[in-house]
Write a protein that binds this DNA or RNA. Structure first.
Length: 827
DNA sequence: AGCACGCCGACT
DNA sequence: GTCGGCGTGCTC
C-alpha cells in the first residue's frame, strides 16, 4: 500500500480497515479488516476478495483507514486481486455521485460499471466426504441422486446439482447432505477472464538455410501428405508472414494428425501465444477531408467556448457534418495526449459510423457497447486503463471505463432518450453524468444534436452551457422541402386511416423511376396497433401492463409492446361475446404489405425490432439498402438513427397524427424531434430532397415549426407549456417508498407525489400551482398504473396496504421503492 | 443478491 | 397438528 494514503500519524502497524464496494444491493458499504500480509498489496481501486455471509465476492476498495469500527467485528479481507488499481479516484467519485444523485447503492453502480468477468463471485462446490459411512438407505430420492453423482465425481459444482434436481430447491437438499455428513462445501472464486491463445506454426530455424531445406525436400521419403502440408506451409509463410495452426489446416485441407507428424519430426514447431481479441490497427491519424467554411467557423467557436465554459451544445441542422467537426476536435485532443469519449445512442452505433472513425483514427479508437462479450470488455477496459487507447466510441455504459486523462466527452444525439437507463438500477442519465464526470478531469463536454433536448437548450439560455450553431448543410445542400398531405378528405372506411395517399404513391413511383431511394416512417411496428370489438368497442389489453395489444400478422399473435408477452388472436370479445373485430390503425408490417400490393415492381424492405433479430440482420439490411438493392425502406425509429444514405431523396411520414397525439407529457418536443430527424434523411447529397407528411390535423402548430425547422420557436413554446401545465424543466428525482406490496395504491401514490411536488413548484412558478399539480398527479398516476403491475407481479400480488407512506428525496434502500424520474439538472 | 426466520393457509 | 409459501430482515 502507498503510505501516503494514510494519515501521517498512523503508519504504525495498527489494525487496518477497508471500506469495500461489493456488487450487491446493500444499505451501505461494509468494512473489512486488512490482515497484516495484505497491508502492502491493498490500495484504493483494487479488487479485493471478501466473504459476506460465507459467500465470497469481489469488491472494490473504496477507502482505507485505521479506526476500528465500534459497532461490529469486521471480517478479514481474503485477498487482493490486482497488482494495479482497476479504477482511479475519478471513477470512484463518479460512482458515489451517481449513487447519491440517482438514489441507488454504489454496489449497483459497480454492477453496471465493471465488466462481469472482473466481478467474480463465489461458486459453491460440494466435496465428497471420504469419512461418510455410505449409508445410502438413509437418503431420500433427491439426496440419493446427488450423492450418487458425488460419489463418482468426488466434486460437484452448484450448477451441476441444480441440473440434477431441476434447479429450484437445490439448497435444502445440499443442506441436508451436509448435515448427514455426505459432503462438505467449499466456496471458490474463479477468475473468469481468459486470455485468448492462438497456436502459431513456425519452421524449425535450421531450415531457414535454403540448402538444408532443399535437402530435406529432395530426400523426402513416405508421408506424401505431410510433404504437401509442408509445402502449403512454406507458401503461406511467404505470403502471410505468420501462420496460425487454424489457418494452415483450413487452407491446406490437411488433418491435425499430418501436422502432428511434421511437428514430431521437428520440422515444424507449434507454439501458443496470447492474443488480442480486438483487431489491432495502425496508430495513425489520417484525416482526408477539409472542413467547409461554416464547419471551420463552428469549430473555432466551440474551441473558444471551451475556454469559458465546460459544456458546449452544438446545434447543427441534419447533414451539417457534425461528425466531421467532432473528428477534427478529437484529433486535437489526441495530439495533446488526452483521451476522448465519444458517446452515441446504442442504436446509432452502426458499422457505418464505426468504419468511418476507424478510417480516421485507426488503432487509437476502440468501440465499446453492450454487444461485446465479457472477455472483450475486459480487454477494452485494460486498454483504457493503461492509456493505450485514446478514443472510445461507445454507448452510455462506456462512461464507466477507467479513463486516466480524459480531455473531452462528445455526446452525439444528446436528446436521445436511450442515454437514460430505465430498468435496472442505477437509473441514470448518461449525458448528465458525463457532465459531472468530465468536471472531475477538468475535461470539456460537447453535446451535439440537430434537435437538442429542451433541458440542454435551457442550460444554454441560462448561460450554463455555451451554444454553437451550424445552420448550413454540408455541400451546401438545401434542406428538403416539406409538404403536408391532408388525409382528411381522402376517402377511406370510417375510423380507418389511410396508409398510402395518391400523392405519396405518385412520389414513390417517381423517385424509384429516377433511381432514387425512399424511406417511409411509421412509429408503430406490427400490423395493427389494436383490435376493437365491432359491437361494444372493447379493446384487448395486456394482462400485465394494461396497454393495448398490437396485432402481428406474420406471427399471427397479439403482442404487448411493453412487456413483449404474446397472446393468441382473439375471435371472441371478452366483454360482449361478439365475434367481429375491426383492426384500427396500421403498423410497419401492414405498410409493407400495402406497398407490395400497390407497387408490385418496387423492392420494399422493412426495418423494425421484429425484422431484425440479431445485430447482424441490421447491418446486412443497411448494406442492402446502401447497395441500392432495396428501393423503399419502411421502418420505425430505427431508420432515423445514425444512418447516412446518399441516395434517399424522398421521405414519407405516414401517420403524423399518431406522432402529434403521443400520450406523452412532452408532446411537442418529441413530435418535433422525430419529424425533424426523419425528414433530415432526405436529400443529404443533393438539393432534391422531399418530405411528405400525411396528416389529418394539418393545423397543428408543431407542423408549421417542422416545415420551417424552427427550433427556437419550438423551444419557447415548450418552455411556456411546461411552465403552464407541466413541471419545472428540471425537477429533482422523486422516489416513493412503500414498505409492503403495491397494488391499489396508485391513486394514493399519485396524490402523495403531487403533494411533494407542490413544494418544489413554488420555486419555479408564480401563478397558482393547482392545474400543474393536477396534471402531474395524472401523469404519475399513469406512470404508476403502467409500471406497477409488472413490479407487483414480481412481488406476487399481496395485500393492498401501504404500511409506510413517505416521499423521500434521500435514498432509503431498506424499503422497496418505486422511482419516477424526471429530467435532472446536472450540478 | 441470497439466506434465515417468522407468519398464515392447505392437508399427508 | 405440521408443511411450505411468502414477506421481512440482515449481512461488515
Amino acid at each position: 500500500m502507498n503510505v501516503s494514503q494514510l494519515p501521517n500519524s498512523l503508519y504504525k502497524e495498527d489494525g487496518l480497515y477497508a471500506e469495500i464496494i461489493i456488487p450487491l444491493y446493500l444499505p451501505k458499504n461494509y468494512t473489512w479488516s486488512v490482515p497484516q500480509h495484505l497491508h502492502e498489496a491493498i490500495a484504493v481501486g483494487k479488487r479485493a476478495e471478501v466473504s459476506l455471509r460465507n459467500k465470497k465476492y469481489t469488491g472494490i476498495v473504496k477507502k482505507i483507514f485505521t479506526e476500528k469500527p465500534a459497532a461490529f467485528e469486521p471480517k478479514p479481507v481474503l485477498n487482493i486481486l490486482d497488482n494495479e488499481p482497476l479504477l482511479h479516484k475519478e471513477q470512484l467519485q463518479l460512482w458515489h455521485w451517481i449513487s447519491d444523485y440517482y438514489l441507488c447503492t454504489e454496489g449497483e453502480v459497480m454492477q453496471a460499471a465493471v465488466p462481469s468477468n472482473l466481478k467474480l463471485s463465489s461458486e459453491t462446490i460440494l466435496l465428497w466426504n471420504e469419512e461418510w459411512d455410505e449409508d445410502f438407505g438413509s437418503l431420500n430420492d433427491e439426496e440419493f441422486l446427488v450423492t450418487e453423482a458425488l460419489h463418482i465425481k468426488k466434486e460437484l459444482r452448484l450448477a451441476e446439482v441444480q441440473q440434477i434436481l431441476d434447479a429450484t430447491h437445490a439448497y435444502p437438499v445440499i443442506k441436508r447432505l451436509i448435515e448427514k455428513n455426505v459432503c462438505y462445501v467449499w466456496e471458490e472464486l474463479k477468475e473468469k477472464y481468459k486470455e485468448k491463445y492462438e497456436t502459431f506454426i513456425v519452421l524449425n530455424p535450421v531450415y531457414h538455410d535454403e540448402e538444408k531445406l532443399q535437402y530435406l525436400l529432395n530426400n523426402w521419403s513416405r508421408a506424401p501428405k505431410q510433404m504437401e502440408l509442408l509445402l502449403a506451409y512454406l507458401h503461406l509463410m511467404k505470403t502471410e508472414g505468420e501462420v496460425t495452426q487454424q489457418e494452415l489446416l483450413k487452407k491446406s485441407n490437411a488433418s491435425p494428425a499430418q501436422l502432428k507428424g511434421l511437428i514430431d519430426k521437428n520440422i515444424l514447431f507449434a507454439h501458443k501465444r496470447s492474443m488480442d481479441r480486438l483487431p489491432s490497427l495502425p496508430k495513425d491519424v489520417v484525416i482526408d477531408f477539409t472542413l467547409s467554411a461554416a464547419q471551420q467557423q463552428a469549430l473555432k467557436e466551440v474551441i473558444h467556448a471551451f475556454t469559458e465554459k465546460q459544456v458546449c451544445l452544438l446545434h447543427g441542422v441534419t447533414s451539417s457534418g457534425k461528425t466531421q467537426l467532432y473528428v477534427r476536435l478529437i484529433e486535437q485532443y489526441i495530439r495533446q495526449g488526452k483521451q476522448v469519449l465519444y458517446m452515441l445512442p446504442e442504436i446509432a452505433l452502426t458499422a457505418q459510423i464505426i468504419r468511418r472513425l476507424q478510417k480516421y483514427f485507426g488503432g487509437h479508437i476502440t468501440i465499446y457497447h453492450s454487444k461485446f462479450n465479457a472477455n472483450e470488455r475486459v480487454e477494452i477496459w485494460n486498454k483504457i486503463n493503461s492509456g493505450e487507447t485514446k478514443v472510445i466510441l461507445g454507448a452510455r455504459s462506456a462512461l464507466f471505463l477507467p479513463f486516466r486523462n480524459l480531455g473531452l466527452i462528445i455526446i452525439d444525439e444528446e436528446q436521445d432518450p436511450s442515454y437514460k437507463q430505465q430498468d435496472p438500477a442505477p437509473r441514470y442519465q448518461a449525458r448528465d453524468a458525463a457532465v459531472y464526470y468530465a468536471s472531475l478531469f477538468g475535461a470539456k463536454v460537447l453535446l451535439g444534436s440537430a434537435t437538442p433536448s429542451i433541458e440542454s437548450y435551457h442550460n444554454c439560455e441560462l448561460g450554463k452551457y455555451a451554444l454553437v450553431k451550424l445552420t448550413e448543410r454540408f455541400n451546401n445542400a438545401a434542406l428538403p422541402a416539406i409538404e403536408l398531405v391532408d388525409t382528411k378528405h381522402v376517402i377511406s372506411k370510417p375510423g380507418e386511416k389511410i396508409i398510402l395517399t395518391p400523392q405519396l404513391k405518385y412520389a414513390i413511383e417517381n423517385a424509384v423511376k429516377k433511381n432514387k431511394q425512399v424511406i417511409l416512417f411509421q412509429n408503430r411496428r406490427g400490423y395493427s396497433p389494436y383490435l376493437i370489438c365491432n359491437a361494444c368497442g372493447w379493446i384487448p389489453h395486456c394482462r400485465n401492463c394494461d396497454v393495448t395489444l398490437t396485432y402481428h400478422k406474420a406471427k399471427n399473435k397479439l403482442v404487448c409492446h411493453y412487456c413483449g408477452t404474446d397472446y393468441p388472436v382473439m375471435y371472441t370479445c371478452a366483454a360482449c361475446g361478439s365475434h367481429q373485430f375491426n383492426q384500427r390503425n396500421f403498423g410497419t408490417e401492414k405498410i409493407e404489405e400495402t406497398l407490395a400490393a400497390a407497387l408490385p415492381d418496387v423492392r420494399v424492405a422493412r426495418m423494425d425490432y421484429d425484422s431484425i433479430k440479431g445485430k447482424h440482420d441490421h447491418d446486412s439490411l443497411i448494406k442492402l439498402f446502401e447497395q441500392r438493392r432495396i428501393d423503399v425502406l419502411v421502418g420505425t425509429q430505427m431508420v432515423v438513427k445514425g444512418l447516412d444514405f446518399e441516395h434517399v431523396n424522398l421521405v414519407g411520414i405516414l401517420d403524423a397524427d399518431g406522432i402529434l397525439n403521443f400520450a406523452d407529457f412532452r408532446v411537442n418536443e418529441r413530435a418535433f424531434q422525430l419529424m425533424e430527424q426523419v425528414s433530415g434523411r432526405a436529400g443529404r447529397r443533393d438539393a432534391e430532397g422531399e418530405v411528405l407528411i400525411q396528416v389529418a390535423n394539418t393545423n397543428h402548430p408543431v407542423l408549421q415549426l417542422v416545415k420551417e425547422h424552427n427550433y427556437e420557436e419550438l423551444y419557447k413554446m415548450e418552455i411556456a407549456n411546461r411552465r403552464q401545465f407541466f413541471y419545472p424543466p428540471f425537477a429533482r428525482l422523486i422516489q416513493i417508498t412503500f414498505k409492503h406490496k403495491l397494488s391499489n395504491i396508485a391513486e394514493e401514490a399519485a396524490n402523495l407525489m403531487a403533494v411533494a411536488l407542490r413544494a418544489s413548484f413554488d420555486q419555479y412558478l408564480s401563478g397558482p400551482a393547482e392545474p400543474v399539480v393536477n396534471r402531474i398527479r395524472n401523469m404519475f398516476l399513469w406512470e404508476i398504473l403502467i409500471k406497477l403491475p409488472r413490479e407487483a407481479a414480481v412481488i406476487n400480488n399481496c395485500k393492498q396496504q401501504i404500511v409506510q407512506q413517505t416521499i423521500i428525496i434521500q435514498s432509503n434502500p431498506q424499503y422497496r421503492s418505486v422511482m419516477i424520474t424526471a429530467d435532472v439538472d446536472p450540478v
